[in-house]
Amino acid sequence: MSGSDRHLLVVDDDDRIRDLLKEFLARSGFRVTAASDAAAASRLIDTLDFDLMVLDVMMPGEDGISFAGRLRERGDSAGATPILMLTARGESGDRIAGLTAGVDDYLAKPFEPQELLLRIEAILRRAGPRSSGPTVLGLGACSFDIERGELTRDGAPIRLTEAEVELMRRLAQSANVAVDRLELARDTADITGRAVDVQVTRLRRKIEDDPKNPRYLQTVRGVGYRLAPD
């Protein structure tokens, strides 16, 4: 399978392991966001949409098993996020505790990266394809056709640059969910995010009735941007 549009959250307090996992999974075609503990992961889950979480058991503060159980108690889509749990301990009791908490699979450290990748792919296959959702989004007087990359106002076409089309598509694919600003900048020439900010400003002039008080292309403080269609 291709992971190109699959977003993974890696949660591990070990900086070296976290960075290695992020690099390996990114090279394997996934979009990857990382967190060092359960508290940071909770904040990310509240604002971003993930297809799967790679979660370490032993972390400072709340441990992975407790966090997985708390996540499963949520009644929203985030609570159904598949979880692959990692641990340095191989005792069967830990595995049972993790599975009881609702994790989908369990992998003991040390592990082969290829085995991790195969387990992730297997979990995502079992989870099935994500809902494709609508292909045309309503934005007040405007409409955006995701497949065609076309923006119209009252039926009349509005010219978009190629960069604006790609930004709109990326935001539309995660409609109503905040997308990290630096994640949006990853495929641009300016990884600082300034180019994204400029594109957002231009798009607001084309979409919003009041660009200074945007209704549809919203800023999410500390995260990035969210497209909120009708």
Rank of each mutant, 00 (worst) to 15 (best):
H7P: 02
H7T: 13
H7A: 01
L8M: 06
L9G: 04
V10M: 10
V10F: 02
D12S: 00
D13C: 09
D13P: 09
D15V: 12
D15H: 13
I17N: 14
R18W: 01
L20T: 13
L21G: 05
L21I: 03
F24D: 03
A26E: 13
R27S: 13
S28I: 03
T33N: 10
A39V: 06
A39D: 11
T47H: 15
D49E: 12
L52T: 04
L55V: 07
G61N: 06
E62A: 12
D63W: 08
F67D: 03
F67M: 11
G69Q: 07
G75P: 02
D76G: 09
S77A: 15
S77Y: 10
T81N: 03
T81S: 02
P82K: 04
I83M: 03
M85I: 00
A88S: 10
G90F: 00
S92F: 15
I96C: 10
I96P: 00
G98S: 11
G98N: 02
G98M: 07
V103A: 10
L107D: 01
F111V: 08
Q114T: 11
Q114N: 11
R119Y: 05
I123S: 09
I123Q: 05
L124T: 10
L124E: 00
R126V: 08
A127D: 14
G128Y: 06
P129M: 08
P129T: 04
S131K: 11
T135G: 11
T135D: 15
L137M: 04
L137K: 05
A141T: 10
S143K: 14
E147A: 15
R148C: 10
E150K: 11
A156Q: 15
P157C: 11
L171Y: 05
L171C: 06
L171S: 04
L171D: 07
N176E: 14
A178V: 04
D180G: 11
R181E: 11
L184G: 07
L184S: 04
L184C: 10
A185D: 03
A185F: 14
R194Y: 09
A195N: 08
V196F: 03
T201F: 15
T201A: 15
R202T: 15
R204F: 11
E208Q: 01
D209G: 08
K212M: 12
P214G: 00
Y216E: 01
L217Q: 04
L217P: 00
Q218M: 08
Q218W: 06
R221S: 11
R226I: 06
L227A: 08
L227F: 01
A228M: 12
P229N: 08
D230L: 08
